[in-house]
Amino acid sequence: MEKRVLEICEEICCQKISADEQLLEEGLLDSYRIMELVSELETEFKIVFMPKDLMELENFSSLKKIVKLIVEKIKGIK
């Protein structure tokens, strides 16, 4: 799954990224791209992000955090 999330993130950020890359701090993800990412991830992993997931921007700050959130969504924790 991590590999697929990486591919989606790279596609949306238009560049290669590493697992620890700070996507928000480095300006790779703005609000428009977050929404694009969310839409792609929801389709790919058949999950639904709740408003609180989206508004907690820390969830999208790095690849690791995004993967963690998806895992929690799949497991039904969040």
Binding site: S31, I34, M55, L57
Partner: peptide, 9 residues
């Protein structure tokens, strides 16, 4: 803050 963020809200 981004319009999508909790801090903006």
């Amino acid at each position: 803050e981004s319009v999508i963020s909790k801090k903006f809200l």
